[in-house]
């Protein structure tokens, strides 16, 4: 097949480009995540916090796509960015928290927090350094993250936990409504 060789050469070039882009994307997204995560911690306004967290989550969705977990990426955007973070924003705006400036913790405590986080990071790195060699159970395939595959696993192996999680949701909903109600209902009895 004469065309094949050309294709191969062309593909190889494409692949190399792809690879460079891949590696670049990984580090780029990682950097965005770390920086925005740090900003979540250090910026004072809650609204800003939410914005940075959303940025962080979008970068995470990019990571999911790099890992061929397309379904996760979509669900992540929908659930976290679309629902949870909106909820955060909603609460902040509802309670008008943006104006209420909460004083920071004392300097000693803050330094302690940073040091503790650093130590924690070091310890975890130390713990994961001597971990394990990956021996994949299945041959490599880039299709595991597709809706079809994840769905099959979810509804075959994890059907019961999936159903039970609905109970969790109901109880969470009931709890949220309970907490959200005005207090005088409780005060009556």
């Amino acid at each position: 097949m004469p065309e094949a060789g050309w294709d191969y050469a062309k593909q190889t070039t494409n692949q190399k480009l792809n690879q460079v882009i891949m590696v670049f994307l990984f580090y780029f997204l990682s950097a965005i995540m770390v920086i925005s995560a740090l900003l979540v911690v250090f910026s004072k306004s809650p609204i800003n916090n939410v914005i940075y967290l959303i940025i962080c989550f979008i970068a995470m969705a990019g990571h999911y796509i790099l890992l061929n977990a397309q379904f996760l990426a979509v669900v992540h955007i929908i659930v976290y960015t679309g629902a949870i973070m909106v909820l955060f924003l909603f609460v902040i705006m509802l309670l008008n928290l943006n104006k209420a400036i909460i004083p920071q913790k004392s300097a000693v405590t803050r330094i302690m927090a940073v040091v503790t986080g650093g130590i924690f990071f070091l310890v975890l790195i130390a713990a994961t350094r001597q971990t394990f060699v990956i021996n994949p159970r299945y041959a490599f395939t880039s299709e595991i993250g597709l809706v079809a595959n994840v769905g099959k696993t979810l509804f075959h192996e994890f059907l019961l936990p999936f159903e039970i999680s609905s109970v969790l949701f109901i109880s969470a909903m009931v709890g949220a409504v309970m907490f959200g109600k005005r207090d005088h209902a409780v005060g009556d009895d």
Binding site: A69, I134, I144, G145, F158, F169
Partner: peptide
């Protein structure tokens, strides 16, 4: 992804459920 096993992704799904609750 490194294991080529979709179970991990199902777990992520569950964690999202818990996180939402």
């Amino acid at each position: 992804a490194y294991h080529s096993d979709p179970s991990g992704q199902v777990f992520v799904f569950f964690i999202m459920i818990v996180a939402a609750a």
